[in-house]
């Protein structure tokens, strides 16, 4: 009988040590700003998939499901003592950072991460592609485009526009810019800019995109002058943008998971915040055909979505 019990104990011990990650405490805490938001939910799902494949354990805390989220998160961090906290969204990062106390921190889905306070040992995956990625992909689709124009506000976007210019020049593209102080100047700025360029680029500038009227004005002027518009988001496709390139959400989750595992092994590659590695491309075939634009047909296998003309057109 004693022998049988001893064997049982051995089996239990073997199972305990053989299960990958079982012996470890809950290593990763995922803090999600709002799991009902599709973007956040997708990122979390992909993150967990990769963690699971690699036998990592995690605990999840969704801020939207807790009335007193900050207190409960603080208690959970103390209780679970995770080695790494992965925050999805600005709210999650801001709260987790207060209570993290020297823990490894990772974030994604944060709008304008450069505004955040980032401590040593904190890493992230940015929300937006870099301008260099966008220009490369733009060039892939439209290899003959040489001059791209954009409007911007000096106060909000000067640095970003300088980066765009530098990145574009490296690929032989000339960026022609026109700064605007307020939305009232957009019409005149477009009149000056559009005749000089092959394509107009909508950047995420709060003055240029201050309202629906500004957006309408841009697309009307571009259409009148038969200039294609490229945008950083596919929301502009329905307005008439010919191409939109943005970060692939699912890849952000997978990329964050790889980064988390590298952080766990203290093998993080250089740089604290990575740009997203995957892109999503939407092509407006209706506008493309209407403008008779030359484009690289071999790039079609990289398009996620092709939008045709509405049937009532």
């Amino acid at each position: 009988m004693k022998m049988i019990n001893f064997c049982k104990l051995l089996v239990l011990l073997a199972a305990f040590f053989a299960t990958p990650g079982f012996a470890e405490s809950s290593k990763v805490l995922i803090v999600n700003s709002d799991n009902t938001v599709y973007r956040y939910e997708t990122i979390a799902t992909e993150f967990k998939k990769v963690l699971q494949q690699n036998a990592y354990q995690w605990t999840e805390f969704n801020l939207d499901r807790h009335a007193n989220a900050e207190e409960e998160l603080k208690r959970l961090i103390q209780q679970e003592n995770p080695e790494l906290i992965y925050s999805i969204g600005t709210k999650a990062y801001s709260l987790a950072r207060i209570h993290a106390h020297n823990k490894k921190m990772l974030f994604s889905a944060v709008i304008n991460w450069r505004r955040l306070d980032i401590d040593a040992g904190t890493y992230g995956v940015a929300n937006e592609l870099s301008s260099a990625q966008e220009i490369s992909l733009l060039r892939y689709f439209f290899p003959t485009i040489k001059k791209i124009g954009l409007l911007y506000n000096d106060k909000f976007s000067r640095e970003y526009v300088e980066t765009i210019k530098k990145d574009a020049l490296a690929l032989g593209i000339n960026i022609v810019t026109q700064s605007v102080n307020d939305a009232q100047e957009i019409g005149e700025a477009l009149d000056q800019l559009l005749p000089k360029i092959d394509m107009f680029w909508i950047i995420s500038d709060p003055i240029v995109l201050s309202g629906k009227d500004s957006v309408r004005q841009i697309f009307q002027a571009a259409e009148q002058q038969k200039k294609p518009v490229y945008a950083y988001s596919d929301v502009f496709i329905e307005h008439g943008a010919v191409l939109a390139i943005s970060a692939d959400i699912a890849t952000i989750g997978r990329q964050s998971a790889n980064l988390a595992m590298m952080m766990d092994k203290d093998k993080v590659p250089g740089g604290t915040v990575q740009v997203p590695a995957g892109s999503t491309i939407t092509l407006n075939k209706c506008v493309l055909d209407a403008l008779q634009l030359k484009f690289n047909q071999d790039a079609l296998d990289s398009v996620n979505k092709i939008v045709g003309c509405a049937k009532n057109d």
Binding site: N54, S130, A132, Q133, S136, L137, Y140, D248, T251, R254, Q255, N258, M261, M262, P269, G270, G271, Q274, V275, P276, A277, G278, S279, T280, D301, S302, N304
Partner: peptide, 22 residues
């Protein structure tokens, strides 16, 4: 080796160029 699945080949190649993958 950690594998990062991206949507398309050119994303994978650019991930090396921009430092997200080795």
């Amino acid at each position: 080796i950690k594998i990062l699945i991206v949507p398309k080949d050119i994303d994978a190649l650019m991930a090396v160029g921009f430092g997200m993958a080795t």
